[in-house]
Design a binder for these strands. Sequence first.
DNA 1: CTGTTAGCGCGTTCAC
DNA 2: GTGAACGCGCTAACAG
Lengths: 363, 363
Amino acid sequence: MQSEPAPREGTLARPTLADVAARAGVSASTASLAFSGSGPVSDATKERVLAAAAELGYAGPDPRARSLRRGRSGIVGVVLEERVRAAFLDPVKIQMLDGITEGIAPLGAGLLLLTDTGEAGGNAVGIESAPVDAVVLVGCSPRLGDAVEVLRRRGIPAVAIEGAAGEGVPQISIDNREATRRGAEYLRELGHTDVALVTLPFDADRTRGPLTPELIAASTADTASERLAGARLVFPDANGRAAAASSIEEGREAGLALLADPATRPSAIIAQSDLLAAGVINAAEELGIAVPAELSVLGFDGIRVDGLQHDLTTLAQPSVAKGRAAGEAVVQLLAGEPGESVCFTSTLHVGDTTAPHPARAAR
Amino acid sequence: MQSEPAPREGTLARPTLADVAARAGVSASTASLAFSGSGPVSDATKERVLAAAAELGYAGPDPRARSLRRGRSGIVGVVLEERVRAAFLDPVKIQMLDGITEGIAPLGAGLLLLTDTGEAGGNAVGIESAPVDAVVLVGCSPRLGDAVEVLRRRGIPAVAIEGAAGEGVPQISIDNREATRRGAEYLRELGHTDVALVTLPFDADRTRGPLTPELIAASTADTASERLAGARLVFPDANGRAAAASSIEEGREAGLALLADPATRPSAIIAQSDLLAAGVINAAEELGIAVPAELSVLGFDGIRVDGLQHDLTTLAQPSVAKGRAAGEAVVQLLAGEPGESVCFTSTLHVGDTTAPHPARAAR
DNA sequence: CTGTTAGCGCGTTCAC
DNA sequence: GTGAACGCGCTAACAG
């Protein structure tokens, strides 16, 4: 072994732990302990090692070698069912991500963004080859089953948020159906009988348009289906429109469609997200319909819609807590524990976008 | 060495490539080639290996070992200067992230979210210990210099978006000063002379309030400073307020403060982001000030502000392209090439939020 | 086309 | 408290 390996391509050969150890006059294992700090090393030795490292420009142990040796990479994967841009347009997802970050904080792990779209061709790092210690599956997708199977084979623990999971996969969810039912009941108590729905997309194609039985039957989106079912528990004949995404603009379009004709105009609208609700409110204001005097609007999520000047009546779900619970489940799984499934309860927040039915209020 | 290592805790020992090779009756390297597909392997052998893998429940090569051997992890780090939630509230950042994803697509690499906040205590995976092949630094921060130094020592190539970088670090930026100057000139051509500013935060504390010389002097935010400088090239005396973040709500507050007093009310406001501009418009509408008839508003970014019913006059910057360029620079660096710095040009998009100065229009 | 030989850089036994 | 050896699981060279 040469003491001075030839630098290649003008780049100085990066020093390795062994180099540092040699420079400090100690053995490699001692140097290792000096860095990981987990073993008994005299302060003097430790200092000498650190000094040697500084002189050589050694930047610490190679994470790749470390993770091979330790069997852990210190990375948690987050699998989104859409492309990054789409996922992060949804405030709820962002909050969940933030919650996940909190939940896995004790791990000190990084978050690796993964999508289940398409296949990881070639040597791409997909769900089947990512150097992750665990994975959080966000949102239910048809191919989620495959993902779980791959992970099971790889022995990588997984947690699912809002999606049918599988054996040994803790599930973090909320009471979509029951919550929506409660919201709908509140509207009924206010005297509303003629209620329309603006739903989240039901399928991967994000079909926009009227709520047809076919569309509903072909649903691959649990969340949309469950919230719809909850609403129909109270208003069995409620109809409406499916949006192509959860956004203010989509809500506005659906709102315009539902409110344009005074003859068929509902007295209340149940939107499956706050962004959609905000859009519906915008639409109403454009049409000169007063909210909540002439139209009640119910949202879902409990986010603060940036720029909306209403206090939305909504079913507030604990998005951050959901993420945190998922993160904590990851921590449990990595500790060899079973990993706790949690179903959170959404709470009806009564704001200023709902009011008694106009006819009743007029009495 | 035992041929049957004791399975621990009821978990079957995960098969390794060697196990598969043995089962298939080939050598380990052959099995390796069968998986990576990069070498000459007969179809028959390949099939046999794959079959053996399937029987054993082998899920493919261990990414940790693979990355140690190859010297590449297939992961690109994205360093955000804020916590995840804050960063992803900014549409521009999300678009950039999406662009980065596109840019590094040829690598098939995953995106690892990193923040430069605090230190990665213990064995946490921070910028100084993340198993990444390259890094994109997003946004300029005071400690960005440290980050670059750490990466240099580790030999990890870096690209900086909107931030002073350093030797060998390609920089992706836009013409903040010049673009704002053009926007300001457009306002001057419309006859405006009394122009107020709503800026992005100048420091890490995100101080909200009047634009004082002290605040500006202590700026650690290039973007805010440059855009300010550009505006003052045209309106040297322009004053205004710094927002604590780029959001509609912050814009609204600043707007209310600037517009409340009719005596000092400007005829135009230059906002340093579209979200801030949208907030200013909301504030104006609340105060019964017509946009653009009584107040012109200029934004920056060129994003579609969800829910805003105006076509904002703004300086459209190519956010996605910026991200893509950063991604491409990463690809170049990893290929051993120098990595190209790019400074994009923003274009003035004239929408319906700017109009001639009221006095001139009245003529 | 396939097998053999060496490590990648580190962490972890053990002895001393 | 420290040193010596071994191997994590895989793959890049070569030899056959």
